[in-house]
Amino acid sequence: MSGPRIGILALQGDVREHARALSDVGARPVEVRRATELAAVDGLVLPGGESTTIGRLLQVFELLEPLRAAVVAGLPVFGSCAGMILLARDVVDGRPDQPLIGGLDMVVRRNAFGRQVDSFEVDLDVDGVEGPPVHAVFIRAPWVEKAGDAVEVLARVAEAPVAVRQGSLLATAFHPELTGDSRMHRLFVDIARSSGSGR
């Protein structure tokens, strides 16, 4: 059996690292830059990058509305860092006008841990990920400021949620794609597999 086709939004950010992690867990990564390419994937990764840049490019290349529609229709999506921001309902400490896809019932705080000199790595226990702690890399990372009841918190740093799931949407404030540990990607591909059979 061949693995699910997982798109990676390739407007800006660390696309290559996500592609490698997805390949490691048996998925078939494909880059997505056009709304037409969205129809052909079983799941989508929103990579790390600059959320204001990606948001603007989503508008320019007419991907924002198709993405919102795909999320509403149940497309499994995994966002890391900037991707987590894009999946939020609202953002604080960002730009009030920055376009978001939404889908996760949460408000995130941008650059919550501080500037680049405050970026850090730490070992983290993540619910749903078996084995030793996940080594998590936080780079000018957001955290979840407020989350609705439907949002399941999978991991926290200093009380703040940094990994969440709501249905087939998964988001991390950190970058599992940078460490060579592909267990978060395995979790997402499993979500995409099980959701695909029901869709």
């Binding site: 950010g13 790390g48 600059e50 680049q116 790595e121 890399v137 780079i139 940078l178």
Partner: peptide
């Protein structure tokens, strides 16, 4: 760390 420093640049790719 080197990973945090280099990782920051990875996030700028395509920009």
């Amino acid at each position: 760390t080197a990973r945090v420093k280099r990782g920051m640049a990875e996030m700028l790719k395509g920009g």
